[in-house]
Design a protein around this nucleic acid. Structure first.
Lengths: 198, 198
DNA sequence: TTATTATTGTAACAATCGGTACAAAAATAA
DNA sequence: TTATTTTTGTACCGATTGTTACAATAATAA
């Protein structure tokens, strides 16, 4: 009595994954439902029957990006190794994302926040949630650094995490809009030094 | 022999100024030429006769934002007072922009960079130029701080400026997309402490 | 005045926008 | 098989997109 009717011949999350790349590289307003159909291979019928609207699909995409992204970021920050190594690896990962990907498109969450948070409260909610989780993870790392003495005490974990968080997002924004590798390396240096000293 | 023909009955730069607000709050792809006409009060004839295309008008807008913005930012960073005061005033100014403006829309240059730099090389050029000028101004300030001892030596002016630059842009991005005042103040604290100590 | 030149508003352009209607297709439950 | 339910592709919707055509308007140069 449950699964009557023609089954869909595509996988939900892999369609979200493809749509993610389309939205990611063109932006919400910059891509059309036709773009989404041709990239995913779905017809409009299936697209709208499954996701409801462009806005709802975007929501699913941003949520998916958040979930996979926060997992990846936590893995980097909670990996074995010194605090210094972990923070450096985190920035190095972002550097690769922003420069060595086939077509660099920065952080989708930032794009979504700037383009849509004002118009779509659900987008703002996801972005806020992601930022909060990432910041808490960074705080835990900073606490560890302070405890072990890797970070010379004097500053609170909250302040350290807030600094690292903002510098990280500025890093990504500057990488995406200027594609300046020299600047990127200077930011990495400046950020690491500001936490661990020269 | 020079100025024959009907003169235009509007001022070029004040139209650019109005169009700036439209692009600023809706984004490039998010606003239409109709929006621009109704906001500026111009007809399509005048709009296209004067600016050529939506893309060219956007270019003029971003260039105008850069020019007025870099002047304001330099004035803050080169004002009399201690280095610490000036850097704090700079962040405080951004805070007001992002939270107390009638409708907060963040930094237009960031939006332009993220939305259009990849598609329009001229936009990337303006953003890169702006960032470079701002960074150089920050470097000069950091040099002064290092010289007078306000900033305890050990780090280079370049690294200090790069850190402050990235943290500033992250600050603005997070303010715009999350509207989280508590976070904003923590970032201000963390950033100032990272340069001057707790 | 008259000729010239630029600006103005309006109408229209083909193309595309997000979204819907709907019948054909394809599966299961009975 | 037959009845039921869902998905699929296609055709289509009115509205809007960026842009152009053009005649009317309004100024100066002669």
């Amino acid at each position: 009595m449950n699964k009557r009717g023609r089954p869909r011949d595509f996988d939900y999350t892999s369609i979200v994954d493809v749509a993610m790349k389309t939205f990611w590289s063109k932006g919400y307003n910059g891509c059309s439902t036709h773009d989404l159909c041709s990239d995913t291979g779905l017809g409009k019928g299936s697209l709208y029957n499954t996701f409801g609207s462009k806005q709802d699909l975007y929501l699913a995409v941003v949520e998916h990006y958040h979930e996979t992204g926060i997992r990846e970021q936590r893995a980097l920050l909670e990996s074995p190794g010194s605090v210094k190594e972990r923070l450096h690896n985190f920035l190095a990962w972002a550097l690769v994302e922003d420069f060595e990907s086939t077509n660099p498109k920065g952080c989708l969450l930032i794009n979504a926040g700037l383009e849509r948070a004002k118009d779509d409260p659900k987008i703002e909610e996801i972005v806020s949630r992601h930022v909060e989780l990432l910041k808490q993870t960074m705080e835990t790392v900073m606490e560890e650094g302070l405890r072990t003495g890797e970070i010379s005490k004097k500053r609170s974990a909250v302040d350290l995490a807030s600094l690292f968080l903002s510098s990280y997002y500025g890093f990504r924004v500057l990488n995406t809009s200027t594609q300046n590798r020299t600047l990127a390396e200077q930011i990495m240096n400046g950020t690491m030094e500001s936490i661990f000293g020269a």
